[in-house]
């Protein structure tokens, strides 16, 4: 177990280092950091002094090492647009994005998994076919257009739910703010989380269905039927458990993707999260925010993958116990 976890952790660190290299390259070489930080009237001497102070004249590996150590301490430099430390900007917006992502992920899993199991087990039933058709429409509608349709229907026409913002938020602890505790916060959460979760939900449903169909054709399921086991045991103890391995992988990836897709949803609903800030950074070439966002999403992704790998370990005995 420990060897397995160490190996995975090592791989995760390598991935993070590569991403850090990318972020660093972007940070250092796209545009001149000094030009972004000073006005036009700054003299060449002053610029050179700033370069020296920022360490931009040091050898590249030294700069990279400094970048990594600073990033590990959540120091990502200063935003070009806002002239504020990037980490402060992110700290203010992380709760909004994480609450939205969490709600959508929950929605995607709670609705998607049972639908997928049902459609996999009852391949020919009318309800399964309905699920499939709806899911196909779900993956064909671009996320932002779903958002627009929902706003048009529930905000503009029916005026039931707000079309932008987080509603009223309550501070929890020193820096976290939550919308879960107020009525307007919860109302504001409904449309964005459906928008964000719908695509993932259809993907998860289709994936589970496909895996179920595949597992049901294996010899051990046939043998389980030939042993006369009741359908409930065959379907849930044998088939479902065996579909879990691939399903967990993809689901992990999809949950990671939710954070990135939040960019779109946050734009449509003017949700004050990291994604919206990232998009503004892209439009204004605010490189420190971009590279910090890159590192942050990569970290979340790698962390999720690591957890998935550890989950495997508990599901699949072939990883846990060696051959004699």
């Amino acid at each position: 177990m420990i060897g397995f976890a160490t190996r995975r952790l090592l791989q995760a660190m390598i991935v993070m280092l590569v991403v850090a290299l990318l972020a660093f390259t972007m940070f250092r070489f796209v545009g001149d950091p000094v030009n972004q930080m000073v006005g036009i009237e700054t003299s060449i001497e002053e610029r050179e002094a700033l370069r020296e102070r920022l360490g931009l004249n040091d050898p590249i590996p030294v700069q990279f090492f400094r970048f990594v150590t600073q990033a590990a301490q959540f120091n990502f430099g200063t935003s070009y647009q806002f002239r504020q430390p990037v980490s402060d900007l992110f700290a203010k917006r992380i709760p909004a994005t994480l609450e939205l992502s969490f709600t959508s992920a929950l929605f995607a899993l709670v609705v998607g998994i049972p639908m997928g199991i049902y459609a996999g087990l009852n391949r020919e039933s009318a309800v399964s076919k309905l699920f499939l058709s709806v899911s196909l429409i779900g993956i064909s509608l671009p996320t932002f257009f779903i958002g627009i349709l929902l706003i048009f229907l529930f905000s503009v026409t029916l005026q039931w739910l707000p079309s932008f913002g987080r509603g009223e938020v309550v501070p929890v602890g020193s820096w976290w703010t939550t919308g879960f505790l107020t009525v307007s916060g919860l109302k504001a959460l409904i449309l964005p989380s459906i928008t964000l979760g719908l695509y993932q939900m259809t993907l998860i449903m289709r994936l589970i269905r496909a895996e179920m169909l595949e597992v049901i054709r294996t010899d051990y399921i046939k043998f389980a039927r030939a042993r006369g086991l009741p359908d409930r045991l065959v379907n849930f103890r044998h088939a479902l458990k065996n579909t879990l391995v691939p399903v967990i992988t993809i689901t992990g990836l999809q949950l990671g993707a939710i954070i990135a897709f939040a960019t779109i949803t946050e734009t449509v609903f003017q949700w004050p999260g990291m994604g919206l800030m990232f998009l503004q950074a892209v439009q204004n070439v605010d490189i420190p925010i971009m590279s910090a966002y890159l590192l942050l999403t990569a970290f979340l992704f790698v962390a999720i993958n690591f957890i998935v790998d550890i989950l495997y370990f508990f599901i699949d005995p072939r990883l846990r116990v060696g051959r004699p």
């Binding site: 043998f223 039927r225 042993r227 458990k241 699949d316």
Partner: peptide, 25 residues
Amino acid sequence: KRLLRGRKIGMIFQDPLTSLDPLQT
């Protein structure tokens, strides 16, 4: 028919490597 399977009629398949559920003891 299901109640016959296993109870009255046992079945042995060709490939022992794929006949058993890999995740159950």
